[in-house]
Amino acid sequence: MDKSTFLKVYFPNGSFHGIRYTSSTTVAELIRIVLKGRLSSCELFYRLSFALRVTHVGKEQEIANLRITSSSDKTNVTDKWLHPNMTMDKVQRLYGPIEDLKFELRLRYFPESIDALSHDKPTFGYFYEQLRIDYMRLKSEHVPVNDAIELGSLEIRKLFKDLNPTALDKKVNVDYLEKELGLKRFFPQSVIDSHKPKLLRKSIKACLKKYEGLAEEECVKRFCSLLKDAWNWQQEIYTCNLGAEWAVPISLVLGPSDGISYRTQNSTNLTKMASFEIVLSIA
């Protein structure tokens, strides 16, 4: 009988779910256990949209927010997606000891319409939290300032969903947000630094006025749509070569609308090679 061992599966907000596994436990089984333990006891409609991502962290040090890896460490695993049929034994053989790996539960596969995803409430909520955190940590500098203020205001409107517009107008001011919640929760540091408090307050209130009648779910949908204009979060992009003898550098683009497409250097147009429906298997 396989010996049972313990690991942590992390969520976008930094919390984790601890589970036991054996060498024969598959990635798909880990995902199923975590989803039932933390998101819903019922089977989720979009359960197959979740995936595990792994990063080697055993010999890394966090110094001044910079990740420094020991030169003697031959393991270079960063943001690797695990195949659902992969066993934990194979994970260890490929990527090293489990205690040196960080496992992250991510919503990786999206339907074409955000409306479709919203019917699965637990998955929809998880997706929004993941997207919002990714935006604030990784993509905020790529979003125009006005859009960043609007995105932050949508999160404020969502957070204070039970307040009517008049109460919200009284509740929301820069001083209150800074003292009780912190502006960094809603807005990138660059936006905070580039605006005087009075001007930022005025911009926030204007956005809240614009969205005063928006329900919580509609706030999320608007957030996703607005962010997608600056960063297409549905796409995964990989740099590779197309061809054998005459290899052409390309960007391989994967997404629900684009299927399997590519873009050559110095081009903005995508060429679609195939749709996901014709994929028979993934090695």
Rank of each mutant, 00 (worst) to 15 (best):
residue 144 P to A: 06
residue 125 G to D: 15
residue 115 D to A: 11
residue 83 H to M: 06
residue 87 T to N: 06
residue 135 Y to F: 15
residue 132 R to W: 06
residue 170 K to L: 14
residue 102 K to M: 07
residue 130 Q to R: 13
residue 119 H to P: 01
residue 139 K to A: 10
residue 111 P to L: 03
residue 168 L to D: 00
residue 173 N to E: 07
residue 135 Y to E: 00
residue 178 E to R: 14
residue 175 D to A: 10
residue 170 K to W: 10
residue 145 V to W: 10
residue 82 L to I: 03
residue 148 A to T: 14
residue 126 Y to E: 07
residue 87 T to F: 10
residue 181 L to K: 14
residue 89 D to R: 13
residue 104 E to P: 00
residue 109 Y to P: 00
residue 111 P to I: 01
residue 146 N to M: 13
residue 129 E to K: 15
residue 173 N to W: 08
residue 87 T to L: 07
residue 161 K to S: 14
residue 175 D to E: 13
residue 183 L to T: 11
residue 159 L to V: 08
residue 95 Y to I: 08
residue 147 D to W: 14
residue 125 G to F: 03
residue 105 L to N: 04
residue 159 L to N: 02
residue 168 L to H: 01
residue 107 L to C: 14
residue 96 G to E: 07
residue 109 Y to A: 05
residue 132 R to A: 09
residue 175 D to H: 10
residue 158 K to W: 15
residue 97 P to Q: 05
residue 111 P to H: 04
residue 143 V to C: 08
residue 179 K to T: 11
residue 182 G to R: 12
residue 107 L to K: 15
residue 99 E to I: 10
residue 162 D to T: 15
residue 142 H to G: 05
residue 120 D to K: 02
residue 167 A to E: 13
residue 181 L to N: 11
residue 84 P to C: 06
residue 159 L to K: 08
residue 82 L to C: 08
residue 94 L to G: 06
residue 178 E to C: 04
residue 81 W to M: 14
residue 147 D to P: 00
residue 142 H to P: 00
residue 132 R to L: 03
residue 106 R to D: 04
residue 149 I to H: 01
residue 171 K to Y: 09
residue 135 Y to T: 08
residue 119 H to A: 13
residue 104 E to Y: 00
residue 94 L to P: 01
residue 179 K to L: 13
residue 102 K to R: 11
residue 153 S to V: 07
residue 117 L to D: 02
residue 178 E to W: 04
residue 87 T to G: 06
residue 122 P to D: 04
residue 88 M to V: 02
residue 98 I to G: 05
residue 157 R to P: 06
residue 165 P to F: 00
residue 122 P to V: 00
residue 124 F to A: 07
residue 169 D to T: 08
residue 142 H to M: 13
residue 135 Y to L: 10
residue 154 L to H: 01
